[in-house]
Design a protein around this nucleic acid. Structure first.
Lengths: 349, 349
DNA sequence: GCGGCTAACTGAATCGTTATAGTTCATTGG
DNA sequence: CCAATGAACTATAACGATTCAGTTAGCCGC
């Protein structure tokens, strides 16, 4: 037996004395050849351990790969541990699976500001929250479908949730019981990295993170509605939506003397809110009597506990499903605005 | 301007009056042509909106795609929401990123028991926990590297954690304070789907889920060590490691009258343990006085709360890193056994 | 001025498929 | 009996790159 390079469709054809076209048809178009011959081909394929047409060659020839790429704003390492991003991916995968497509994960945060060369293999692109490095998208093959999730990009369908009204709704609910010292915990709102307290001048930077900005706008509108000047409300900024990065900032905040410590925290994400909740409990603060906390996103973690987190639920899984359906052409590629749901837990009843 | 089919390397070469080989070199081997010409080619590429060699053609010609496939035992939809699987993926992505490789997600649970045709595009395979549908692997191109995580497969490197000793250690710790009524909550141990209480005859089925089985063996050894007959310990089985599937079973168990309700739960996963913890708290049971609970895995969720979960930490991220390094040839492909760490939380001090 | 060497570039084969346009041959309707 | 039809199968040209074996031209040393 020779060192046996891989078996190709051509080998199979030669072995059986038929043309390659026929073998190809045996795999792809059963109606184009007699059942008997097809059977013979499939049997011989099994014998020779030929596992079907090679995806590389097939995709070159047909122009389609059955692969959909998801381009994530953050590193994959982060995104895979973030419940919101994971849910999005989960929804995408759910739809792709039913159509025999697979999922290629790409990060928009490459060390060289370049798409990995394998990006052009995909049949379509779902881009998630990619504000800062939008330029990367120029490297993608044009003419191929692309939908954006959680940010805006011209000439493509965009999927959003109603961040501003949702933020307004939860802040309005929280402010109905007037707080003495409300505070906002932002998520990556500043241009320059900053993990800690920020002044008003920093918070009003260009809206380079659409969703955080929209949520903040909603908060401000609620403040105005309750006669609170935005300048009165202190803000903290979190650089990365992880417990590790978030905890020290919250610790500092909770360590303030009783008459300076906020008694209401409007958090930009559930992760932040849950970190605050845990640290506050550890300090012996009573929730919600001493401190009320609201989140944003509606992740499972916040509901499978006591007290449950007061938050706004967005259906990330559904965002993923919709995006996937659009990319596969199962639904028209039109921008969509999904609604959110106020979830009244016990952290801010 | 004609309807402009996509621009190829050949177009670029023709436009510049050079050979395709030279254009190819401009992108792949800068040292093979004069800097001046390279510059001219790159500029022209930009002008024509040519974004570099097509991944499909390149991968056919070179035989490499820079894509590593991960084959997950469960559906992608489930796996992406499971913290343990997510951490594994996260570790894999971390290493692949540094080498310019990307991640293709495949599920071992396809509706037709067949790999998606795009599977053969990958340069290597990392297979996770794929016990039941091992046959699927036969469809993968031979000769390409494959490593297994959390299960055994012949002729390939396998990455495991020391499940049996870890389970022994945590059970031994728990049994040091003699329980009146210990119980085990299993994860998919039975051949037939079964969500609820199981008898001993069902638990001794063939070891078709290596890790669950190994953990159970560890528990049994600890029981023996403390003079407890395996038959004395009631067992419940959970079909899927999610809160939704798990909760009703735990509810039933906790609803037992005081003198029948277990006072120690050895759970096969942190997810199960956390569900039990939450439901027990909701019922007003005191933890650990009325009920002690142990988990397995060491997910973050279990530590960022009070009381913290007593569990065994396995470093899934590191498993992913190791697997990825092996696949990329950065480390020799040798089976590895990782160690775990007993984490003493407050749920079983 | 010549052989030899290197840098810079080219031509053409090749990767493993699929698609298109045939070819062959038995069957059918008129 | 002949033209027309259709089923079953084939030959071959792509798909868009990379690679290998050359070819040129310029330069160096003697």
């Amino acid at each position: 037996m020779p060192p046996s390079r891989r078996i190709t469709l051509k080998d199979l054809a030669r072995e059986l004395g038929v043309s390659t076209a026929t073998v190809s048809n045996a795999f792809n178009r059963p109606d184009q050849l007699s059942p008997a011959l097809r059977e013979r081909i499939l049997t011989e394929a099994q014998r020779l351990r030929y596992h079907g047409p090679d995806a590389k060659a097939r995709s070159l020839r047909t122009g389609r790969s059955q692969i959909i790429a998801v381009i994530l704003a953050e590193s994959l390492t982060y995104s895979l541990n973030d419940p919101v991003a994971s849910e999005l991916l989960s929804g995408i995968a759910e739809v792709l699976d039913t159509q025999g497509h697979t999922l290629l994960l790409l990060s928009g945060r490459q060390s060289p500001a370049r798409m990995p060369s394998s990006a052009s293999i995909a049949d379509g692109y779902i881009v998630y929250g990619l504000m800062p490095s939008l330029a990367l998208l120029a490297d993608l093959p044009a003419q191929r479908p692309l939908v954006a999730v959680d940010f805006d990009i011209e000439h493509h369908a965009c999927i959003h949730v109603d961040n501003e009204p949702a933020a307004y709704a939860i802040a309005d609910h929280a402010l109905a019981t007037p707080p003495r010292r409300p505070a906002v915990i932002n998520l990556r709102l500043t241009e320059q990295p900053c993990n800690g307290r920020i002044g008003p001048e920093q918070t009003l930077l260009p809206a380079n993170r659409t969703i955080t900005r929209a949520r903040l706008d909603g908060f401000y509108r609620a403040f105005a509605n309750h006669g609170i000047e935005p300048g009165e409300v202190p803000m903290w900024n979190i650089e990365e939506n992880t417990h590790e990065v978030c905890a020290p900032v919250i610790e500092d905040l909770l360590a303030l003397p009783d008459d300076e410590r906020p008694d209401l925290l409007l958090c930009m994400s559930d992760r932040i809110a849950l970190t605050a909740l845990m640290l506050a409990e550890a300090r012996g603060l009573r929730i919600p009597e001493d401190l009320r906390i609201t989140g944003f996103d509606g992740i499972a973690e916040g509901q499978y506990r006591a007290p449950r987190l007061t938050t706004v639920r967005q259906d990330s899984t559904e965002k993923g499903r919709i995006a996937a359906r659009m990319i596969l052409g199962l639904a028209p590629a039109e921008s969509q605005l999904l609604h959110t749901e106020l979830v009244l837990g016990e952290t801010c009843p």
